[in-house]
């Protein structure tokens, strides 16, 4: 049971909460480094992670030509706040933002839903071919995405899905990510069967059990999946570029590319790009900060369910 929990928690990329291991505060591992040394390293790590982003903001504040001063100045000379307005305006930011939101929301919904359903079936329902399908799904994780690129493009073209959002959304609704299925199954396996039995006695059908009992119990699983699916869709660039040619249908990722065009024969407008970049990065950032709490909170419930 310990191994399962280790794998389950480790795979979600989260940490077990404090409360379910009350002895931790007392039992301490031997300290590896002294206090000052730790803080120095911590400072270095934080700097490496944050400074590039601060640099990005600096460029976003510089004027178009000041970006190419040699040697570059660390702080902008003129604080061109207008970049944050002009940059987004140049690519019709609001429309693209809406597009990104719709595409991503649908992808997340589809991906999480179908993965949870498939994982539930694989873990808790007995049916012929159960093991086979599991191995097939896991095996498909090994398939490089590029294998599908050319055949799928031809396929979409022939069924008329070209220049629509369908190639970006429908795969999610068809169990698009095998890793999620694997995760879902892991979580479902950890739930004791007695809960199913209890619900069945109460007269609940499979669907009821799934929605009212299983889903709440596996919250950390689908929250993690949702975050990963969100990132994958929000940041996807190549697929929308290939499948969409009408500019009003583009998500933000593709719209950003119009700043860095070599074809105009001029150097790209980096200050507009970086300023808009910041706005483009905000939603994933906000979601990440908001969801951190859910991870920890949700895991508390997982801990108590397995402590039987």
């Amino acid at each position: 049971m310990t191994t399962l929990r280790t794998e389950a928690t480790a795979l979600t990329g989260t940490e077990p909460p404090g409360p379910s291991q009350p002895t931790r505060a007392a039992a301490k591992k031997p300290r590896l480094v002294g206090t000052t040394a730790w803080y120095v390293v911590a400072l270095f790590v934080c700097a490496v992670m944050i400074v590039p982003l601060l640099w990005m903001i600096t460029i976003g504040l510089k004027s178009r030509t000041a970006v190419f001063d040699i040697p570059p100045k660390l702080l902008p000379h003129e604080w061109t706040w207008s970049n944050f307005i002009d940059g987004p305006k140049a690519i019709h930011f609001p429309r693209l933002l809406l597009n990104s939101v719709v595409i991503t929301a649908l992808s997340v919904l589809g991906g999480v839903m179908t993965a949870m359903m498939a994982g539930y079936a694989l873990a808790r329902l007995r049916f012929p071919g159960r093991k086979v399908w599991f191995y097939l799904f896991v095996g498909s994780m090994l398939l490089p995405g590029v294998v599908g690129l050319i055949p799928l493009f031809q396929l979409y073209k022939s069924i008329g899905w070209y220049d629509t959002w369908l190639p970006l959304i429908v795969p999610a609704f068809l169990g698009g990510n095998p890793l999620f299925i694997f995760l879902a199954r892991q979580y479902f396996l950890a739930i004791p069967y007695s809960i199913d039995e209890a619900a069945k006695i109460d007269g609940a059908g499979h669907f009821r059990i799934f929605t009212s009992v299983m889903l709440p119990l596996t919250r950390p699983a689908w929250i993690t999946m949702a975050i990963l699916a969100f990132q994958a869709s929000w940041n996807d660039f190549l697929n929308p570029l290939v499948y969409l040619y009408s500019s009003e249908k583009w998500p933000l990722s593709v719209g950003m590319a119009s700043f860095i065009s070599p074809f105009a024969g001029q150097t790209p407008n980096w200050s507009y790009y970086m300023a808009t970049n910041l706005l483009y990065m905000l939603p994933p950032l906000i979601i990440f900060f908001a969801a951190q709490r859910y991870f920890i909170q949700g895991l508390g419930s997982l801990g108590s369910t397995t402590q039987k």
Binding site: K157, D163, L241, Y245, F263
Partner: peptide, 18 residues
């Protein structure tokens, strides 16, 4: 028609095949 000028080549390839 609008096109991201940086992606003109990709765009043209897609449109040609489609």
């Amino acid at each position: 028609i609008d096109t991201p000028s940086g992606g003109y080549g990709d765009k043209l390839a897609s449109l040609t095949q489609a």
